[in-house]
Structures are given as C-alpha cells and as structure tokens.
Write a protein that binds this DNA or RNA. Structure first.
Lengths: 210, 210
DNA sequence: ATATTTTCGTTGCACTTGCAACATTTTTTT
DNA sequence: AAAAAAATGTTGCAAGTGCAACGAAAATAT
C-alpha cells in the first residue's frame, strides 16, 4: 500500500535512483539508529525491513510514534514532531533508500514517465500521511482522556470495520499517542470497562456500546 | 508560495484543467459555503480570493482552523478534522478550481511535462501541509495550557525570527487551535504576563524570556 | 527454571482546567 | 452617536488528570 516505486520497472527504478543520487543503505538489526534532523531534507524509503520512529523522552524512555514496514516512507518533514530528538530505530535487518527531497523536486527531465510515476506515488503517500495526522489531531483536540479513547476506538472501528480493536502498540505508546499520562489512561480504561462500554483482553479491546 | 500551477504556462494550464475535467467556480462573498465531506475526493484550488476553513462547533459557533488565500489548496483530506462538519466559508468574491483527486492520479499521459509539474507542485504543497500538522501535534501533545502556549510562541518565534508575535487569529480561534478552554487560556496568558514572560497588546505578543 | 527487566494496574493527592456566569471592552450595526 | 453584538477578561468551583509510588503480572534474559 503506497510503495513509491509502484508502477515503475526495475530498470527504470535503477535509472531513477541513479539520477537522483539516491543511496541504498543496509542497516543491521538493533545496532542502527537514524536520527531525523529538522530540515535535513532527506526522504527515506524502506525497501525491506522494519523501522520504528521513536521520540526520545525526557526520562530517557523511547516512545514509538510510527511503526513502518516495506514500502513505507519516513523523513524529518513527515515524522518530525518534537525536537527532543526523533529517531528511526531499525529493529530488523533493513534496506533503506535515502534520497534528497530537493533533488527530487529539482529533477530536470520532466518528460520521463517513470519520474512522473514516482512523484505521483509520493503525492499519494503524502496525502495519506496528512489524513493520519488529521486523525491524530482529531483525537488530541478532545478534552478528556475518556473522549480521546472513545475517538481512537471509533477511528479504529471504522478502519477495520469491526468492534474488535487490536492495539497496534502497547499501552505506554498508546498513552503517548493520545498524549495523556499512562496511569491516568489505565484508570480511565478501567472505568470504561466497569461501566460496560468496553471489554479488555490484553491488546484486544471490544466495543460494547452503540 | 506553493501555487499548484507554478511553472505551468496559461495554455498548458487550460489543457490540464480540461483533461482533468476541472470546474472553475465563482463564489460570492459571504453567501457561499463549501462543505467538506470526508472521502469526497475533491481538491479545491483558490485562484483568487479568501476562504476560511471552519469547524462548526456544538454551540453553533464557528471556529476558524485555516485561513487561505490565492494559490492555496484545501480538501477534505487536507482539512478534515472532525465530522462535526468542516466548512469552507468564502469571505470575499472567490474563484476556485475544483478537481477530482482520483482523476489527477488516474491521468493517463505521463509524458506531458506540465502534468509532471503539476503533480510535483501538489507534492510540495502536501509536504508543507504535513509540516503544519506536525507543528500542531507538537503543541497538542503538551500537557498544560502554559506549555502549549509557550510551544506555540516558540514556533512563531522561529518562523518569523522575531520576539514579536502577531496572532494570525483572535483568541477564540487560538484557544481552539491549541484545544483548550478560552477562558482558561485567558487566565494562563494573564499569568504569563504577570510573571514577566510575555507582554500582551491586543494581538501582539512579545516574548520576554530567554 | 530462575532471575531480571519491562509493562501494566491501582491509588492518594495536589494542581490544572473546563465550565458557567458575569463584567468589561471592543467591534459592528443601525 | 447610540445601540447591539461580539470578543475578551475574571473568578469560584467541581471535576479530571498528572505525578509519584508501589505491587502484580508479563515478557525477556540468564
């Protein structure tokens, strides 16, 4: 879903990467961290592997903000949230193609159809990312933990068209995502459970209302 | 900054719009409201005029979330935050070009360089929008009104490279932007002023710390 | 299997904030 | 200029939440 090389042949892909001066990099599991610097202007494409974008907390903890796999893209523009250091952590052996965004934009030969395709793919991905950000804002503008959780559940329900929600990350990261204190969120989840709104079984939450 | 037709000649622009089946629409001041429906798949480009994207509040109030002028773009994907109805209100006589996003993506002739240019411009705008969303998320993840305000000031300070901040909207909309109660924000602004962190003169705020 | 580390649940308490209500100021309309 | 409407400032209070601390449970390492 949303591979930036979709519709581009292997041959043209190689041409494109050469023209863009892209680097193909191999990162080893756990030993690699890619720091995202604001305005570094670099777009990273995951060929194969897994990258977790994390925010380094004040306490020295790391909070996962995005969990990305084959075909996905990350960059300081896309993922930069806080200058308290945003890192991309490689959790499996991962191959990444790294490109300069300005080079992409400045690319001269507009007649190359594979370049056209490439930009189009980027546009599609960016559109998707905006929607994701809007989703999160929709949650964060809710004033109480309860309403943030319910909004989150609602979004997940629509996405998966199911009353069963399988949390994509642990409760620490969920609390960070909806930007509330973890223990307070835990308390509110208990309340929602006690009041019969939801069922909780580990990372599986079932919506009972509506 | 960020016109989607940048670098495209008038002639090619007309060709492009025809090929995309784009509609040019004229809206009269104040009498026009464009409702943004989720998944409507329409991208609107402001040729000339002003459009305020507003969120219709529960109380029947309208809160401005974006204030857009010539060359800017809005759409349900970009601006959709809450299904409590997001509207685009036309506040001057405004000309808008309306396009179907899927038509843009499905456009066949990849060799046309003006189409290439067009998509490239869209990509640039989307990238900018993501940064704007990330900025807001950066603010909304702060836990207290004080820190949200300070984060907002900091972002504005960097943007304008000045300790003087001229609020782009009124205090009602600012409170909505940082997602806090207006009166509570007003109280916190007074506190910051009393504690000597800032000066307030109408919509001009001066940073005194640092 | 045992030990160690991490995650998760719970709770008391202080503090912040939303809410409501109202006064004051500013802006807009008549 | 006067009146009406909208925006802003202020405050008491109840409610919700962050924080800290701790124990239990689960996951991971030895």
């Amino acid at each position: 879903m949303g591979n930036i090389f979709e519709g581009i042949s292997e041959k043209n892909k190689r041409k494109l990467l050469k023209n863009l001066g892209a680097d193909t990099l191999h990162y080893k599991k756990d030993q690699s961290v890619i720091r995202l610097f604001k305005d570094d202007n670099i777009i990273n494409f995951i060929v194969k592997g897994n990258v977790k974008v994390v925010l380094n907390n004040i306490n020295g903890n790391q909070i996962v903000t995005e969990d990305l796999y084959d075909g996905d893209v990350f960059s300081s523009t896309i993922n930069y949230i806080d200058e308290n250091e945003t890192d991309a952590i490689v959790t499996e052996d991962t191959e990444i193609i790294s490109m300069n965004q300005q080079d992409i934009i400045d690319f001269k030969d507009n007649s190359k159809s594979y370049y056209n395709m490439f930009i189009k793919n980027l546009f599609i991905i960016m559109t998707k990312k905006i929607s994701e950000r809007n989703e999160r804002i929709q949650i964060l503008t809710k004033k109480t933990i309860r309403y943030r959780l319910l909004e989150y559940f609602e979004i997940m329900r629509k996405k998966n068209n199911s009353l069963n929600i399988y949390l994509p990350y642990n409760y620490i990261d969920l609390a960070a995502y909806i930007a509330v204190d973890r223990s307070a969120m835990s308390r509110e989840l208990s309340n929602l459970k006690d009041e019969g709104f939801i069922n909780i079984k580990g990372k599986k939450i079932t919506i009972l209302y509506k």
